[in-house]
Design a protein around this nucleic acid. Structure first.
Length: 802
DNA sequence: TGCTTCTATTTTTTT
DNA sequence: AATAGAAGCA
C-alpha cells in the first residue's frame, strides 16, 4: 500500500520506538511484541486460547497512544460482548490513564447504534428509533404470518425469523432475495412477501432489529459515501476481537470502514480546493479459527482464513504459547481439536508443568452428577479455593436446572450467567414497552403489547377499530388513541383509552419535556413509576392471587432500581439511552461479579472467560455434540470446537462429567458418553467413576447403563454383575451411595444444633458438625456415616432429626 | 371479552 | 415437566 500523504487529522507519525515503549513490551514474548509493535495496514493475530491476546490488544492500543501515532478518538476497538469491551477499556486505562476516554471500545451492535442514532435522519428514521430484540421481532413476524395465513404453506414464525436473520447477515433484502428465488413456488413468494412486509413494518415503527443494526449501517455507508467518509476519517486504527465469529455483514462493515478516503476538502465558499487521498484505517484482527462457535448465527470462518487474501500484504502473527492452563489440560484440548480436519495445525504449549490430571465422573442421573459437582466444589472450598474461581459449564440452558436444585440444597452459592434473562421476563418487557411507547410513539408493536395490560377491556376487536381509524385518518396508532372521542367506542372503552392516553401523555412530559429542556437524570425512574402506578399495572399484580405475580412486583421494583443506577452512571442519559443499554446489554455482561459464587453458564457464554476450576457437565452424545448439530453441515466440527473452548477455559483443574440417564421432555432416557471423551488420551484422565464402572459388563467399552428402564434404547434389560452372581443382582443403584432423589420439602422451623443426629433421605444417617447462617438460610454442616461431609440448606433438605 | 381447560410444543448455542 | 397457545364456554 502506498504511503499516505498524511492530512491534518493524523498526529505526527511514529517517533522512534524507544525508551517510552519498553515497559509496554516487558514480559511479552517475541511474537506478542511483534504484534504490539507492527505498523502496517493489516495485521492478523492468530491467538490460541489463553495466549494473552487481550494483553496484546491492550498493549497495542496503549503503544499507539503513547507514541502519539493516534489520538484516542481515532481508535475503534470492537469486541463481541459488552463485558469484553468493559474489560478492555479498563485495561487500557490502566496503561494510559484518562486518555482512554475518547476511544470507541464497544460491540459491533453498540457501535452501530451510536452511528445510527446520529445518522438515522438520513434515511427515513428518527434518532428515537427502538431496537427489537429477537422476542420483539418474533412477535411481529408471528402477527404477519397470521395475517398472510402463511402457515398454510408450511411457514412457521420461527422458520421465517431465522431465514430473515440469515439473509440479513448476508446483507440480502427481500428484493435481492426475490431475484434469485424460485418465484413459481408459492411458499417462496409468500416468504418474500413476509420479508418485505416485515421490513416495511419495522420502518414504519421506526425500529431496527438486531441484524438491521449492522446491515443498515452498511447500507448507510454504501448509500451515503459522505457519511461513511466522516467515520473513515475519524477511525484510523480499527481493532477487532474474536474475528472468527464475524458474519458477512460485520465483515462488510469493517471493509467499508477501512476503505481509503477519497474525498474533496472543502476550502470554504463551496470551492473544492484539493482532492486528497488518504489510506484506509489500519486494521488489526485477532482470532482463532478453533474457537469459532457461532456459525449458527452466520459467523463465517472464511473471514479469518482468507484474511490474507482480503487484505494483501497483511502481516500474520501466531501466538501459540499458552499462559493459562497446565499441560495436561492443554493436551486434552489439543488431542480433541486435532480431530477436526480442514484446520491449520496449531499446538498450544505451556511451561507450567503437567498439573493435575483431568477428573472424570459418571453419575447415574443428572442429579447425581450435580451432587458430585456440588460435593467437589465444597471440598475444594475447604482447601481454600474461592467459589468465584470455579465454574460449571453445560451445553444447553435447560441443564442448569438440575444443577441449581442441588446447589440450593447443598448451600453452594452460585450465579447463573445468561439463561432466562431478566429483560426477557414478561413484566419487564411490559414495563419497557410502556417506556418505548412514550419514547418512540411510532412503535405500534410496543403499544399493542401494553394496550390491554393491565386488563382494560380492550380486546382484539377494539384494537382493530383503533388501527382502522388510524389508517383512514393517516395518523399513527398512538395519535389515534389521543382522539378517543372519535373512535366510536362505547363509554366504558372510551374511558379506558382516554385514561391510557393521559398516562402516556403525562409520562411523555416527564421523559421528553415539550419545553425542550433536558430532563433531569431521575426522569427515567420517575416516568417509569408514573406509568406503572397510574396505569394500574402494579395494582393489578398486587391484587392477583397468582403467587408468581408477587415475584413480578419485585422484579419491577428491581427495574426501577436499575433506572436509578443508570441515572447515577449517566447523568445526561435519556430514556432512549436507557432503552438502548437495556436492549444491547446481555445478562452475561453483568458487570458486578459477585466473586463469592460459583458461575454457571453455557459453553457459548464461557468463551473468553477463564477459571481455576472448570466443571464441564453433560459430556454425552446428543448433548455435546448436540443431536441437532449432526444434520447440519459443519455441525459436528463446530461442536468439537465448542468442547475445546470449554476445556481451554480451565487454568488448573478440569472435570468432565456425565450422567447415564437424563430426563428430557419429562421422559428419562439412557445417555451415552460423548465421542469426544475417547479423543482424550486415557492416561491424562483420572476416572473417579468411569462410564465403564457403571457399565454392568464391567468392560472398558463405553456403553450406557442398563438402568431399569423398560425403554433402554439398546433393548438391554438386566445383566449379571461382574462377579458372576454371588451377590444378589447388583442394580446400578448400589454404586451410587450419594444418589439423589428429587424431593423438596419445607422444614423452615426445624431446629438443629451441633451434635444432633439426623437422617437424610438420600445420604442416610449423619451427625451435625455445625450450623451456620440465619433464618431461612440456615445451613447444617453434616458428617454422614457413609456419604461423607456435606452442607445442607436446612429449610429444604429432605432430613429428619433423630 | 375474559376465564378455564385442554393441547401441543419445547431445549442448541446469542448480539 | 413446564408452559404457551387454542379452543370452548360464560
Amino acid at each position: 500500500m502506498s504511503e499516505s500523504s498524511t492530512p491534518i487529522i493524523v498526529p505526527s507519525g511514529a517517533g522512534p520506538r524507544g525508551a517510552a515503549h519498553d515497559e509496554l513490551l516487558d514480559g511479552l514474548n517475541p511474537q506478542q511484541r511483534e504484534a504490539v509493535e507492527y505498523r502496517g495496514q493489516a495485521l492478523l493475530i492468530v491467538a490460541g486460547a489463553g495466549s494473552g491476546k487481550t494483553r496484546v490488544l491492550t498493549h497495542r492500543i496503549a503503544s499507539l497512544l503513547r507514541s502519539r501515532e493516534a489520538w484516542p478518538s481515532q481508535i475503534l476497538a470492537i469486541t463481541f460482548t459488552n463485558k469484553a469491551a468493559g474489560e478492555m477499556r479498563e485495561r487500557v486505562e490502566q496503561l494510559v490513564g484518562d486518555s482512554a476516554r475518547g476511544m470507541w471500545i464497544s460491540t459491533f451492535h453498540s457501535a452501530c447504534v451510536r452511528i445510527l442514532r446520529r445518522e438515522a435522519e438520513q434515511f427515513g428514521f428518527t434518532k428515537a428509533f427502538t431496537i427489537y430484540d429477537s422476542g420483539d421481532s418474533r412477535a411481529l413476524i408471528k402477527r404477519l404470518v397470521k395475517e398472510h395465513e402463511a402457515d398454510a404453506l408450511g411457514l412457521t414464525p420461527a422458520s421465517v425469523q431465522s431465514r430473515i436473520s440469515k439473509l440479513k447477515n448476508e446483507l440480502a433484502d427481500a428484493d435481492s432475495y426475490a431475484r434469485d428465488a424460485n418465484m413459481n413456488d408459492p411458499a417462496e413468494r409468500m416468504f418474500v412477501d413476509l420479508f418485505s412486509d416485515y421490513q416495511r413494518q419495522l420502518q414504519r415503527a421506526n425500529a431496527f432489529d438486531f441484524d438491521d443494526l449492522i446491515a443498515q449501517t452498511v447500507y448507510l455507508f454504501r448509500a451515503f459515501p459522505d457519511v461513511a467518509d466522516v467515520y473513515r476519517k475519524r477511525f484510523r486504527h480499527i481493532l477487532v476481537d474474536e474475528y472468527q465469529d464475524t458474519n458477512h455483514a460485520q465483515y462488510a462493515l469493517i471493509h467499508e470502514l477501512t476503505r481509503p478516503v477519497q474525498s474533496s476538502v472543502d476550502a470554504g465558499g463551496g470551492m473544492l480546493a484539493l482532492m486528497d487521498e488518504q489510506d484506509g484505517a489500519s486494521l488489526t484482527v485477532v482470532g482463532d479459527s478453533d474457537q469459532s462457535i457461532y456459525a449458527f448465527r452466520g459467523a463465517d470462518i472464511r473471514n479469518i482464513s482468507e484474511f490474507e487474501r482480503d487484505f494483501p500484504g497483511a502481516k500474520v502473527v501466531l501466538l501459540e504459547q499458552n499462559y493459562r492452563s497446565t499441560q495436561n489440560i492443554l493436551t486434552a484440548a489439543n488431542s480433541v481439536i486435532r480431530n477436526n480436519f480442514d484446520r491449520k495445525d496449531k499446538r498450544l504449549w505451556s511451561d507450567q508443568g503437567d498439573g493435575e490430571k483431568v477428573v472424570g465422573f459418571t453419575g447415574y442421573s443428572q442429579h447425581d452428577e450435580a451432587q458430585f459437582v456440588a460435593d467437589e466444589i465444597e471440598q475444594l472450598r475447604r482447601k481454600g479455593v474461592d467459589y468465584g474461581q470455579m465454574a460449571v459449564f453445560y451445553r444447553t440452558n435447560s441443564q442448569s436446572r438440575a444443577l441449581e436444585e442441588i446447589f440450593i440444597r447443598s448451600a453452594v452459592p452460585y450465579k447463573i450467567m445468561g439463561g432466562t434473562k431478566f429483560y426477557e421476563r414478561q413484566e419487564i418487557k411490559d414495563a419497557l414497552a410502556y417506556l418505548v411507547s412514550v419514547a418512540n410513539p411510532a412503535d405500534e408493536m410496543a403499544l399493542r403489547r401494553i394496550i390491554n395490560k393491565p386488563r382494560r377491556g380492550i380486546g382484539d376487536v377494539t384494537v382493530e377499530t383503533i388501527s382502522g381509524f388510524a389508517e383512514r385518518e393517516g395518523i399513527t396508532f398512538r395519535d389515534a388513541l389521543g382522539r378517543y372521542a372519535e373512535l366510536g367506542l362505547g363509554p366504558k372503552l372510551q374511558g379506558a383509552v382516554a385514561q391510557l392516553h393521559n398516562v402516556l401523555a403525562e409520562a411523555s412530559e416527564i421523559l421528553l419535556p415539550s419545553s425542550g429542556e433536558a430532563p433531569p437524570p431521575t426522569s427515567v425512574a420517575e416516568g417509569l413509576q408514573v406509568l406503572l402506578n397510574k396505569t394500574g399495572y402494579l395494582d393489578a399484580l398486587r391484587a392477583s392471587r397468582d403467587p408468581q405475580d408477587e415475584a413480578r412486583v419485585e422484579n419491577l421494583d428491581e427495574l426501577v432500581a436499575v433506572t436509578r443506577e443508570f441515572a447515577r452512571n449517566n447523568p445526561e442519559g435519556t430514556v432512549l439511552d436507557f432503552l438502548t443499554e437495556v436492549a444491547l446489554v446481555a445478562d452475561s455482561d453483568d458487570l458486578d461479579d459477585e466473586s463469592g459464587s460459583v458461575s454457571l453458564m453455557t459453553l457459548h457464554t464461557a468463551k473468553g472467560l477463564e477459571f481455576d476450576t472448570v466443571f464441564l457437565t453433560g459430556v454425552e452424545e446428543d448433548l455435546i455434540p448436540h443431536r441437532i448439530s449432526a444434520g447440519e453441515p459443519g455441525g459436528p466440527q463446530e461442536e468439537r470446537r465448542l468442547f475445546y473452548v470449554g476445556i481451554t477455559r480451565a487454568r488448573k483443574r478440569l472435570y468432565l462429567s456425565l450422567a447415564m440417564t437424563r430426563a428430557q421432555f419429562g421422559e428419562v432416557s439412557a445417555a451415552m458418553p460423548s465421542r469426544f471423551l475417547q479423543e482424550i488420551p486415557a492416561e491424562i484422565i483420572h476416572w473417579r467413576q468411569s462410564p465403564g464402572d457403571v457399565n454392568s459388563r464391567g468392560g472398558t467399552q463405553s456403553r450406557a447403563l442398563n438402568a431399569r428402564r423398560p425403554r433402554d434404547r439398546w433393548g438391554n434389560t438386566q445383566q449379571l454383575p461382574p462377579g458372576g452372581g454371588l451377590k444378589p443382582k447388583s442394580t446400578a443403584m448400589d454404586r451410587f451411595p450419594g444418589m439423589v432423589t428429587n424431593k423438596v420439602r419445607d422444614n423452615g422451623d426445624l431446629e438443629l444444633a451441633a451434635g444432633d443426629r439426623i437422617r437424610h433421605e438420600d445420604f442416610g444417617e449423619g451427625r451435625v458438625d455445625a450450623v451456620t447462617g440465619e433464618g431461612p438460610k440456615r445451613i447444617a454442616h453434616v458428617r454422614f456415616d457413609s456419604a461423607g461431609s456435606k452442607k445442607l440448606l436446612i429449610k429444604i433438605a429432605p432430613i429428619t432429626k433423630l
